[in-house]
Design a protein around this nucleic acid. Sequence first.
DNA 1: CTTTTGACCTGACAGC
DNA 2: TGCTGTCAGGTCAAAA
Length: 271
Amino acid sequence: MPELPEVETTRRGLAPRMTGRRIAAVIVREPRLRQRVPRRLAEQATGATIRSVDRRAKYLLIATDRGTLIVHLGMSGRLWIVDRHTPPAAHDHFDLVLDDGTVIRLRDPRRFGLVLWQTGDALAHPLLARIGPEPLSLAFGGSALHAATRHRSAAIKLVLMDGHVVAGVGNIYANEALFRAGIRPTTPARRISRARCDRLAEKVREVLAEAIAAGGSSLRDYVGSDGEAGFFQDRFMVYGRAGEPCLRCATTIRELRQGQRATFWCPRCQR
DNA sequence: CTTTTGACCTGACAGC
DNA sequence: TGCTGTCAGGTCAAAA
């Protein structure tokens, strides 16, 4: 379900409701996520006071005075606020109950998500330590992208989706950024000039920022932490539009497979 | 080191 | 209606 804009939308919805609150209870109904939910999570986290709710790539970092709860939504996860009397439904694997009665609930049918606990520096966790620069930070730009791609013969779209090159660019926004940059997704990464790296990095930032401003994209059942749907899906130029006319030049949008993921592109606008 | 492939898991949907 | 096959927003480990 969620790419970076959806995770950021979730973070923004949760942060004001969670910051400063104490964790009153931790309920694990199904520990078998991508990694097993730590057995001692409840005893470690209960009673901790939440300092902040942050994001690194697509990981949510709920920092407390005792350690950090690391949550990833995988493909189908969603983290939202429910009334404390809402009975858990199917796939509601995890609840965080706060001292004011707020319940933060994780629903994840496919169980590709994660709930982990890390004491000390959360960013030192093995899953986070080697992630590339945040796309919306100053550390990412044409210069960084150019440097990271010089020895990569793989297709630019695959490299863009490699979290060690740049954090959090998933399938939808990789497709959309490449369209905006006018770059063919199959181009070997090392063949992209510095000028085009500048342009591509700029378009990655632009499309992510626009999607965050729109509250993310609501596909299938995704909604934000407050239950509101995002609406960026209405602005897709290529994603999911195979066979339809390009919104810029009317050429038929094409589809191919790269790394077992669907790629959509306009053969005229992207070269 | 990089690249490629398969694995994890459930639900929705198309086609028969 | 039910079966089968395919696909889905992510990421990692293993093999080449």
